[in-house]
Design a protein around this nucleic acid. Structure first.
Lengths: 127, 127
DNA sequence: GTAGGAGCTGGAGTGCACTCCAGGTCAACC
DNA sequence: GGTTGACCTGGAGTGCACTCCAGCTCCTAC
C-alpha cells in the first residue's frame, strides 16, 4: 500500500510542506516515486512519520530527531545509542510534565483568588 | 525594598535583556528609577515577573500575557475577563499534560522494545 | 581624577520550525 | 487538445521570543 503526499499529510497530521521540509533536512528518507516523479509513501514511512510527530509533540528539537534518524539509518549497531536518546528524552518529558503540574497549581490558586473576589462582590450586592 | 535589574533577573530567572524586552512590549510596567536613571524593581514588580514566568513556562503566548497585563492595568472591572483567560489557559495546560502523557506511553513502549532487543542479544551471547 | 563595572538606549541579529511562492510538470477527464 | 488539479523544485519569507551590540552615562573605589 502506498500513499500520496496529501494522504501522508492527512495521516500524520503534518502539512505537505512540512513533509517535504522534513525530507530536505534528512529527518525522513526520500520516499519512493511514481512514474511521474511524485512521492509514494509506504506504510513504514507513515509509521516513522507518526513516531516523529510524537517526538515533536513532546518537544524534542529537530536536530535530536535528526540524530536519531541518522542512527536508525545506520542499523542495529546503533540501537544502544538510540535507546539512550529515548531514555534521556523520557526523563525530560517527565520533568516537563512535573513543571506543568506545578504551574497548574499556581493557576488554580489564582483562579480561586478570582472566585473569591466574585464571591465577595456578590455578597456585597445582596448584603 | 527595591531591586536592581540584575537582582530582578536573578530572582525571576529571566535574563536582564528579557526584562527590558518585556518592559518594551508592555508585559511589565516600567519600574521606578533611581537618581541615575537605573531601574528599581519593587516586591510587587518581582511578584508579577514570577507570575509571568509561570505563564510562560506553561506555554502562554506573549500576546495573551500582554492582554492579561493590560486588563490588570485597567483594574478590578476586568477581573472577570482575566479569570476567563486563566480558566481557558488552565484547560489548555491540562490538555497539554494529557498529550505529553500519551506520548510518554509511546516512548515507554519504544524503550521496552529496545530493552527486548538487548535482552535477545545477551541471550544470543550466553547461549 | 581615573579605571572599572553596572546599567542605559535604539536597533540589529539569531535560532527554530516551519510556511509560502513562482514557475513548472504530469495525468486525467471533457 | 485544453483545462484542471495534484504535485514538483529551489528559494524566500514568517512569527515567535528572545539575544546581542555599539556607544553612551553614572557611581564607586582606589
Amino acid at each position: 500500500m502506498t500513499y500520496s503526499i496529501a494522504q501522508a499529510a492527512e495521516h500524520s497530521g503534518l502539512s505537505i510542506d512540512t513533509l517535504r521540509y522534513y525530507e530536505r533536512i534528512g529527518l525522513v528518507d526520500p520516499p519512493a516515486r511514481d512514474s511521474g516523479g511524485r512521492r509514494n509513501y509506504s506504510d513504514d514511512d507513515l509509521g516513522w512519520l507518526v513516531f516523529l510527530t510524537r517526538l515533536r509533540t513532546t518537544g524534542m528539537p529537530i536536530r535530536m530527531m535528526r540524530e536519531y534518524a541518522q542512527l536508525r539509518h545506520r542499523g542495529a549497531a546503533t540501537a544502544g545509542r538510540r535507546k539512550q536518546i529515548l531514555f534521556e528524552h523520557r526523563a525530560s518529558v517527565r520533568e516537563r510534565i512535573a513543571e506543568l503540574q506545578s504551574c497548574l497549581e499556581v493557576l488554580e490558586y489564582k483562579i480561586s483568588h478570582y472566585e473569591q473576589i466574585e464571591h465577595t462582590f456578590v455578597e456585597g450586592i445582596t448584603a
